[in-house]
Simulated scan of single mutants.
Amino acid sequence: MMYLSDYINYSEDKGQKPECFISFQNDIGIRDSRNLMDVALFRVSKRSKRAGELMRYTLANGYVEIKSGPDGMASVWDYDIVLMLVSYLTEAMNQYREGKGNMPGRVLCPYVRDILKFCRKSDGSRQFAEVELALDRLQGTIIKSVREISGSGGRIFRNVESEGLIGSYSILSRTNIGRVSQVKIEIPNWIYNGVTSGKNPQVLTVNPGYFRISTGIGRFVYRLARQASGKTEARWSFRTVYARSGSESDLNEFSRLLRKIISDNDLPDYDLREETGQRGPQLVMTYRKDSLNIFYEEA
């Protein structure tokens, strides 16, 4: 059997640009795309598939729409695979910038066991099947970004971009045991360009404790705190957090769930509290100064 590392070395020996890049290791930093961490690109509920639905977030210079296909909207747990793409692409670019490797291409080729290990999931037969279902939902969940951009002479241009949470994918199965073995996942432009363009990739590191957050809303709040607060403090009204979460619950139920997260106050790296504001209750997110700084050295 030719393993992925053998394939890459073989391609390089033949003077070909490797189709896949892979350098799986245990201590890789976890990253997320900085640009869209303040909106939910996924459903936060485990129960509702939300097939054929649309979520729309109004921003200062436009809006973002999340559209789901017939397989359902990608969940925040499916999004762990996107974190994997961002993380390994960033690692490969760091190596390239240091002169220690080639410019990475757009295809990541993990084994399913590598995906499960990265996402801190058990290596069971059901999990292997779930990876394929997650890839279906990720590919069928489309991000459409519409923004107004200032041009020369004071002219305003409308910029529209639309792309899936992942690009195409393919799977090679070990048919004798019925398990998915090797996966090829195409990295979409919104991730690839954000990591490879310019000197500084548009990513933020994520605490590995993120994978232990059990609720979808809790995971969204952590991503929001990481993007908005950084190493300081940020405050958002409950209404705005609710609007950006894409939650199907009404505001009262969402506020109840958010207050439970505030009361538990066990998210990695950030202390949460509620304060009264002019627009109603406010979520205050404060960086916990005793957090391990290794997680917050930018990519």
Results as ranks from 00 to 15, higher is better:
residue 190 W to F: 12
residue 163 E to R: 01
residue 144 K to A: 07
residue 200 N to D: 12
residue 19 E to H: 10
residue 79 Y to V: 03
residue 177 I to N: 15
residue 252 N to T: 13
residue 198 G to M: 00
residue 127 Q to E: 15
residue 100 K to T: 07
residue 230 G to Y: 00
residue 194 G to H: 04
residue 100 K to P: 05
residue 49 K to M: 07
residue 5 S to N: 13
residue 285 M to S: 02
residue 118 F to V: 04
residue 62 G to M: 06
residue 187 I to Y: 00
residue 133 L to I: 03
residue 98 E to C: 12
residue 139 Q to G: 13
residue 66 I to L: 02
residue 169 Y to G: 06
residue 72 G to V: 06
residue 201 P to E: 04
residue 22 I to M: 06
residue 134 A to L: 04
residue 234 A to Q: 03
residue 20 C to D: 05
residue 34 R to G: 02
residue 54 L to H: 02
residue 274 E to W: 04
residue 21 F to L: 06
residue 255 S to I: 13
residue 61 N to D: 15
residue 37 M to I: 00
residue 65 E to H: 07
residue 285 M to G: 05
residue 22 I to H: 09
residue 222 Y to H: 05
residue 239 R to A: 15
residue 100 K to W: 02
residue 5 S to I: 10
residue 277 G to V: 06
residue 29 G to V: 06
residue 130 E to A: 15
residue 206 V to N: 04
residue 149 I to Y: 10
residue 258 L to D: 04
residue 125 S to C: 11
residue 57 Y to D: 01
residue 297 E to T: 15
residue 235 R to E: 10
residue 264 D to S: 13
residue 149 I to N: 13
residue 291 S to Y: 05
residue 138 L to G: 00
residue 73 M to Y: 01
residue 121 K to H: 06
residue 242 Y to E: 00
residue 1 M to T: 13
residue 170 S to P: 13
residue 281 P to H: 07
residue 48 S to M: 14
residue 160 V to W: 06
residue 44 V to L: 10
residue 125 S to P: 03
residue 290 D to I: 10
residue 203 V to L: 01
residue 270 Y to C: 12
residue 38 D to Y: 03
residue 31 R to V: 03
residue 287 Y to L: 06
residue 138 L to C: 04
residue 105 G to N: 04
residue 213 I to Y: 05
residue 223 R to F: 03
residue 172 L to V: 08
residue 91 E to R: 08
residue 135 L to F: 03
residue 89 L to C: 06
residue 19 E to V: 05
residue 6 D to I: 10
residue 21 F to R: 01
residue 294 I to R: 09
residue 145 S to N: 13
residue 246 G to Y: 00
residue 44 V to I: 14
residue 9 N to W: 12
residue 127 Q to P: 02
residue 262 I to K: 11
residue 251 L to G: 08
residue 54 L to F: 08
